[in-house]
Design a protein around this nucleic acid. Structure first.
Length: 1011
RNA sequence: GGGUGAUUAGCUCAGUUGGUAGAGCGCUUCCUUUACACGGAAGAUGUCGGGAGUUCGAGCCUCUCAUCACCCA
């Protein structure tokens, strides 16, 4: 049956994938013929995720590596799985509930909600795993892992797994080693999701903001001499002030101010350091007085040089407040609204004043309970509160005023032009307005919620990263793990060397609930305070608690304890579990071994440590660094020896893809249009180390065409009815042509392997493209035609066998990049021992296969054909016309090359015959070659002027080269200092070029005679 | 402000111890010649961002300027 005209990717790809999967071709250890393992951990996509171009790219890299190693007989595992993605999934399910008109999360409660999440997962989760199959990914699906597998809430219908055990075990171990602690810290708070998030989940974006300038009056109407000086110490301003000027971008946080700080060297404020000033907002009678302190933080040249200190709502202020033991008043609730709880403002303000006056001691818990928001602002949204605070202060006349022409204003008036200069005086320009500077400010946003992040003082769990960062740094520094491209290592060092504690608790429900139970603590015989019991299970925690309390103990809910205390009516101690869950990245950090059955002693642990991690460089800190730290902390070993980082995949213009821009390329659309192989080839080809990844549909289309070219090469073999036995050994060859192509195959195999080993996938792809198209199709198939059609049965048989062997090598070498079309072509042969996916990767070398003489001869033949074709085209010999060829001074080598290959040359260059002559006749096109000068006699056909022009153009090019070569060789310093082989090469090159030059000169002279 | 990287043909990009620039796409001309028009043949196009330095020799190394991108404050 003749082959179809092209490869039908649409129908063949699903069929082939099914065949592989049914055969278990991707299972861990499939096709293994040696003990060495090769393991890649798929960066687990979110369970809510869909395949995008970034996945398509790095899956291609991982699949190429895995297929390549599997064909080499390694015991391979490409481990797939899904990440439970705490925030993203919880959000998705909440949206789903809203869309279906079901009760809200908070209304249905934790248990019921988690049930819904699992239901959602079963129905909609993990679609990406089906999409990955369309790419041809050779993962062991039977092992697909899930970061929440084995959770208490998981329904029985879920695939069994123990990832949950692994996560809790690690938490408990780290807790016991003192690597995890709980504390009240200022953290990034997402008011939308009402949870803490880590530094990495915050995006700082520059936005247009404002800077307000307010007057904080000095206590008791006190005044001081305020003096400003220029650089030379000349006084530029001197006035008596009864206030200190404060600049802020966040007026609503003034309510929580604990102090005003100035730099100790700031002479302007020296007279008032240690005095009290008044926060100019809130009920007039209860205005709070706060101290003016010194701290190194204020920048004398920024704003007024004086900074209000709101420890509970700003990271810099937090540090200042800690240094100065300044109370940090929290002003907002979990939604980012102004607090509405606590005592009336009058009482709170009085207490705060006593603290500020040093008349009352305070502790963390006491401060946390105080609500410093006056009644009029309570319950307001934080941005609304800001507006109201600004309006109130301004109305009271406590804004710093400036002229309306002040350039710092958002819309300053133009300075008036004096009447004598032709303008008119304007009174409005003299008017004073509040000083509100227009200012670009960096504002933190939640990377998922996109709302403004609020620094909040809350109790959270932290990993003491400083204690576990060492081995992760050493692993890279000592080369046990290599990060590619190398620039990634610098970035890695920089981050790890400046690492901050990692906030790992999240106020969410979907995730690994923190395995800590709280109970009361007895101090001096009295119940006072809280103590924690950390254990992997409730029963173990209870056991410890019972021993501790030596009495009746049970587990209750947090609500119960908050309402009734730790002791119930029967004097039974009640403990409750921390309601928070762990940061998703805490569990992802365990991916390299949690997927392999750990902590159980599973056989699959032989795949740890894995080999290569392929991921986007944007995730270096989020994930890579944490896997390094966690693997070292838990197993004392780095999780992989190579990290391959790639950039974000962009569109053809290099822009980020976004739905709003409408430039999103869906990899599945590309697969639909051009087939997975074309997309994969394009991905491989753009995988230059450290390169910018720009995906282009034209390029993908070009590689679809390449697939068709390969298809047609087989169609060619089919057409010539070349037997396709399959799995035939490399034939013994006598024909130069066959020796040559086998040598070329040896070269390309080495190039491909070297490129793959160096993670230079673009080089591998390019080499295969050039070999298959440029060598096999363009030359070898064309050269084989006369033999295949000829009478020499032995030569024909040998060529048939070689051709089949070479085409098979193309399939094998291309398979990791283009698995579908190659497997399809492979399967055409009747008898194959194995599928191509399990075929043996070749090990032959160029040294073994290259026949130097054959190589030289065929290159000479190709050169001659190229030159004849070029000459013909330039002097407009009709493409179909057969012309005679003349030659002078053909040496023995040239003669033998001609004799061996004249049939090929004549056919491809359209030559009728070859005649030896002593001199070329008039009107002859000259073709200089190594070993003889060829000519095409065209007599009257030739346009002499045109031919002279052609030769002179060639001479010009040659002249440039000759100039360079001669210049170098005439320079004694070059000959002295350059390596010998470089000099020798230049010399040989020069001789060759000079010979060519002589031939051209002669030809031009001959033509000149006619002219 | 700190860090990292980029700037090479019309476009998108390669170019690994410094030896005198390449690919794909696009473009021009010719060709439906029995594998392939998703094709074949021929061809054009580059002061390798600007400047300086090291060197016999620089796209590559050093300095500097410019522009852009990303990451972190």
């Amino acid at each position: 049956m003749p082959m179809e005209k092209t490869f039908d990717a649409k129908t063949a790809e699903p069929r082939l994938y099914q065949m592989w999967e049914d055969a278990g071709a991707f299972k861990a250890g499939a096709n293994a013929s040696r003990d060495e393992t090769f393991c890649i951990m798929l960066p687990p996509p979110n369970v809510t995720g869909h395949l995008h171009v970034g996945h398509a790219f790095n899956h291609t890299i991982m699949d190429m590596l895995t297929r390549w190693k599997r064909m080499q007989g390694y015991d391979t595992l490409w481990q797939p799985g899904l990440d439970h993605a705490g925030i993203a999934t919880q959000l998705m399910v909440e949206k789903d509930l809203a869309a279906k008109g079901l009760p809200k999360r908070t209304e249905m409660g934790r248990e019921k909600f988690l049930e819904k999440v699992w239901e959602w997962k079963a129905a909609n989760g993990g679609q990406i795993e089906q999409q990955a199959r369309r790419l041809g990914d050779s993962m062991d699906w039977s092992r697909s892992a899930f970061t929440m597998s084995g959770a208490e809430s998981a329904p029985a219908t879920e695939k069994p797994g123990n990832f949950h055990d692994a996560v809790l075990k690690v938490f408990v171990e780290m807790y016991n080693k003192g690597l995890i602690y709980r504390g009240k810290r200022l953290v990034n708070w997402d008011p939308h999701f009402e949870t803490a998030i880590s530094d990495l989940e915050v995006e700082n974006i520059e936005v247009d903001g404002h800077m307000w300038h307010f007057k904080y009056p000095l206590a008791g109407g006190e005044t001081y001499e305020y003096v400003e000086k220029d650089e030379d110490g000349n006084v530029t301003l001197r006035e008596t002030r009864d206030y200190i000027s404060i600049a802020t971008t966040r007026p609503e946080t003034m309510l929580g101010d604990g102090a005003v700080a100035v730099h100790k060297d700031d002479e302007r404020y020296a007279p008032i350091i240690g005095k009290l000033c008044e926060i100019p907002v809130g009920p007039k009678e209860q205005r709070r007085l706060i101290p003016i302190i010194t701290d190194p933080y204020p920048d004398m040249n920024f704003g007024s040089g004086a900074v209000k200190i709101t420890g509970a709502h700003d990271f810099n202020d937090y540090e200042v407040a800690k240094r100065g033991n300044i109370p940090m008043y929290s002003l907002m609730d979990t939604k980012g609204n102004m607090r509405a709880d606590g005592k009336p403002y009058i009482e709170e303000a009085a207490t705060a004043q006593r603290i500020a006056n040093g008349e009352q001691d305070f502790d963390e818990a006491m401060i946390a309970a105080m609500n410093m928001v006056p009644e009029e602002y309570r319950g307001l949204d934080r941005f609304e509160a800001r507006k109201r605070v600004v309006a109130d202060i301004t109305a009271e006349g406590l804004s710093v005023m400036t002229v309306a022409t002040d350039p710092r204003l958002e819309k300053p008036l133009k300075a008036p032009v004096a009447p004598e200069e032709g303008g008119e005086a304007r009174t409005d320009a003299d008017e004073l307005v509040p000083l509100v500077e227009a200012k670009k400010i960096m504002q933190p946003f939640g990377d998922r919620s996109k709302v403004v992040i609020e620094p909040m003082l809350t109790d959270q769990w932290f990993v003491d990263t400083a204690k576990i960062v060492g081995p992760a740094l050493d692993a890279v520094k000592e080369g046990r793990t290599k990060i590619m491209p190398e620039s990634g290592e610098k970035v890695y060092y920089h981050w790890l060397e400046n690492i901050e504690p990692w906030c790992i608790s999240r106020q969410l429900w979907w995730g690994h609930q923190i395995p800590v139970w709280y109970g009361p603590m007895k101090v001096d015989g009295e119940w006072k305070g809280v103590q924690a019991f950390c254990a992997p299970t409730e029963s173990e925690a209870l056991l410890v608690a019972e021993q501790t309390y030596a009495g009746d103990t049970r587990v209750g809910t947090q609500e119960e304890v908050l309402a009734n205390g730790f002791l119930d009516e029967n004097d039974c101690v009640v403990i409750y579990r921390d309601p928070d869950v762990l940061d998703t990245w805490f569990s992802s950090g365990l991916w390299p071994f949690g997927t392999l059955g750990w902590p159980a002693e599973d056989e699959a642990m032989k795949y740890f440590p894995g080999d290569v991690l392929v991921t986007g460089q944007d995730i270096l800190f989020f994930w890579v660094a944490r896997m390094m730290m966690m693997s070292e902390a838990v197993l004392g070993k780095e999780p992989f020896h190579t990290v391959y980082l790639h950039q974000l995949v962009r569109d053809a213009k290099g822009e980020k893809m976004s739905k709003t821009k409408g430039n999103v390329i869906d990899p599945l659309d590309m697969i639909d249009a051009y087939g997975a192989d074309a997309l994969r080839f394009s991905n491989a080809q753009m995988a230059a180390l450290g390169g910018v990844l720009k995906i282009s549909e034209d390029r993908i289309k070009g590689y679809r065409n390449f697939g068709t070219k390969l298809w047609n090469a087989f169609s060619f073999a089919d057409h010539y009815e070349i037997p396709y036995p399959g799995d035939a050994a490399r034939p013994e060859t006598t024909q130069t042509l066959n020796k040559w192509i086998i040598g070329e195959t040896g070269k390309v195999r080495e190039t491909v392997d070297a490129a793959m080993e160096a993670y230079r996938f673009n080089d591998a792809a390019d080499a295969l493209y050039a070999f298959t198209w440029g060598k096999v199709c363009d030359w070898y198939l064309e050269f084989s035609k006369p033999i295949l059609q000829g009478e020499d049965a032995a030569a024909k048989a040998e060529t048939e066998q070689t051709l089949r062997w070479v085409l098979d090598q193309c399939l094998i070498l291309l398979h990791p990049i283009m698995p579908f079309i190659t497997e399809e072509l492979w399967q055409q042969a009747d008898s194959r021992a194995k599928m191509l996916v399990h075929a043996d990767w070749p090990t032959y070398t160029a040294a073994e296969l290259v026949d130097t003489d054959a190589d030289r001869e065929m290159n000479w033949v190709i050169d001659l054909i190229d030159n004849v074709r070029s000459a013909r085209a330039q002097v407009h010999v009709p493409a179909g016309a057969k012309v005679p060829l003349l030659v002078t001074g053909l040496d023995a080598k040239g003669q033998s090359a001609w004799d061996n290959n004249h049939v090929l040359i004549q056919r491809l260059a359209r030559i009728e015959s070859l005649s030896h002559v002593n001199d070329f006749p008039k009107g002859c096109v000259t073709i200089p070659m190594d070993g003889g000068t060829f000519g095409i006699p065209l007599a009257d056909l030739i346009d002499v002027a045109e031919e002279i022009a052609r030769l002179e153009k060639t001479m010009q090019k040659l002249g440039k080269e000759l100039g360079g070569l001669r210049g170098r060789l005439n320079n004694p310093k070059f000959v002295e200092s350059a390596p010998d082989e470089v000099v020798a090469e230049a010399k040989a090159n020069l001789a060759l070029r000079e010979n060519e030059e002589a031939q051209l000169k002669a030809a031009i002279a001959r033509l000149a005679e006619i002219g």
